[in-house]
């Protein structure tokens, strides 16, 4: 907290993840196109993943693969959790895209406003 430059370099990655999360959130909330909403959701997810991985990073460490002469390894636990999360996020994305394809077949549109209009007709 004392030295402003080290404070900045210690938290810049976290703030970058926050900005990515804000951007994704904004896309999800304001864009009506369903595919764009899925892309926004993916950005929110990747922001969380980035934050997690940055927590596991250790200065002067190496990747957590046992190596002669390596003194420090980065923390393998966040890596494991995020590995699982990435694969699950692809599964949910594929399900969302399949739903979008069906919505397009049923309503003839993937725009939220048009779907709502057709629903109220």
């Amino acid at each position: 907290m004392t030295d402003p430059l080290s404070f900045l370099s210690g938290h810049a990655v976290q703030w970058g993840a926050v900005v990515l999360l804000m951007t994704g959130l904004y896309i999800v909330m304001t864009r009506g196109n369903l595919i764009k909403k899925v892309v926004g959701l993916n950005i929110v997810q990747t922001a969380v993943f980035l934050l997690y991985i940055s927590i596991g990073y250790v200065e002067d460490g190496t990747a957590p693969i046992v190596l002669e002469g390596a003194a420090r390894y980065s923390n393998p636990l966040p890596h494991v959790l995020i590995l699982t999360a990435i694969v699950v996020s692809v599964a949910t994305t594929s399900l969302a895209l399949a739903l979008i394809v069906r919505i397009r077949e049923a309503y003839g549109s993937i725009e939220e406003d048009e779907i709502r209009e057709r629903e109220s007709d």
Binding site: H11, A12, N75
Partner: peptide, 12 residues
């Protein structure tokens, strides 16, 4: 939050 790369952070 602990700073990036801090080896003394609780997670490690």
């Amino acid at each position: 939050m602990p700073a990036l790369g801090d080896a003394a952070a609780p997670i490690h």
